[in-house]
Computed example of a mutant assay.
Amino acid sequence: MKFCDECGSMMQTEDDTWVCTQCGYEEGRDAADEADMVTTQGQEESEIIESSGGTSGLPTTTAQCPNCDNDEAYWYMQQIRAADESETRFFVCTECEHKWREDDH
C-alpha cells in the first residue's frame, strides 16, 4: 500500500504508475520498494474456533450484583469513550447474568 506524498490519500496502481485517488498525483512504480511492502498474499489462514458464547471464559471478581445480591461476577474492560479517556469495566453476574458497568468518576 502506498500513500500520496501530496495529500496523504491511498494510491492505486495503473500499469507502471502509482496514481492518487483523490488529487491525481502520479509517481512511477519501483519494484524494489514494492518488494518490501507487506501484503496478505501468502499469509496462512487462521483456524476459526466455534465459541459456545456466554461468559465462562472471563475472569471473575468479588462484586455485588444490584439485581440478585450475588457477590461474584465476571468482568471485562471495553473502550467505549474517546481514546484519551479510561476504559469502562463491565460486570456480568455469575448467578442471574445481570450486566452492569463501572465508570471512573
Results as ranks from 00 to 15, higher is better:
1 M>P: 06
2 K>I: 14
2 K>F: 01
4 C>F: 05
5 D>R: 13
5 D>A: 10
7 C>H: 08
8 G>E: 08
8 G>P: 08
9 S>L: 07
9 S>C: 11
10 M>D: 01
10 M>A: 13
10 M>R: 09
11 M>G: 02
11 M>T: 02
11 M>Y: 00
13 T>R: 09
14 E>H: 02
14 E>F: 08
14 E>Y: 05
14 E>Q: 14
16 D>W: 01
16 D>Q: 12
16 D>H: 10
16 D>T: 15
19 V>Q: 01
20 C>R: 00
20 C>T: 00
20 C>I: 09
20 C>Y: 02
21 T>A: 15
22 Q>W: 01
23 C>L: 08
24 G>K: 11
24 G>A: 11
24 G>F: 10
24 G>W: 05
26 E>P: 04
26 E>D: 05
26 E>K: 15
26 E>M: 15
27 E>Q: 14
28 G>M: 14
28 G>F: 10
28 G>D: 12
29 R>P: 07
29 R>V: 15
29 R>G: 06
30 D>Q: 13
30 D>H: 14
31 A>R: 12
31 A>I: 15
34 E>I: 14
35 A>Q: 11
37 M>T: 07
38 V>D: 05
39 T>H: 04
39 T>I: 01
40 T>G: 03
41 Q>Y: 02
41 Q>D: 00
41 Q>V: 01
41 Q>M: 03
42 G>C: 08
43 Q>I: 11
43 Q>K: 12
43 Q>A: 06
45 E>G: 09
46 S>P: 00
46 S>G: 06
46 S>Q: 14
48 I>P: 00
48 I>R: 07
49 I>Y: 08
49 I>L: 12
49 I>W: 04
50 E>H: 10
50 E>F: 13
50 E>Y: 04
51 S>V: 15
51 S>G: 09
53 G>W: 09
53 G>T: 11
54 G>N: 05
54 G>P: 10
54 G>A: 05
56 S>V: 02
56 S>E: 03
58 L>K: 01
59 P>L: 04
59 P>Y: 01
59 P>G: 06
60 T>A: 05
61 T>F: 05
62 T>G: 05
63 A>M: 15
63 A>S: 13
64 Q>V: 04
66 P>M: 08
66 P>L: 10
66 P>N: 02
67 N>R: 13
68 C>T: 12
69 D>Y: 08
71 D>G: 10
71 D>S: 14
71 D>E: 10
72 E>I: 03
73 A>K: 01
73 A>P: 03
74 Y>M: 04
74 Y>A: 00
76 Y>W: 12
76 Y>R: 07
81 R>K: 12
82 A>W: 04
83 A>H: 07
83 A>V: 15
83 A>R: 12
83 A>Y: 06
84 D>W: 14
85 E>N: 04
85 E>A: 07
86 S>V: 07
90 F>R: 03
90 F>H: 02
90 F>N: 01
91 F>P: 05
91 F>S: 07
92 V>K: 06
92 V>N: 07
93 C>L: 13
95 E>S: 12
96 C>W: 11
96 C>Q: 02
96 C>V: 05
96 C>P: 00
98 H>S: 07
98 H>K: 05
98 H>I: 03
99 K>F: 03
101 R>V: 07
101 R>M: 14
101 R>I: 12
101 R>E: 10
101 R>Y: 10
102 E>D: 12
103 D>I: 12
103 D>N: 09
104 D>I: 15
105 H>M: 15
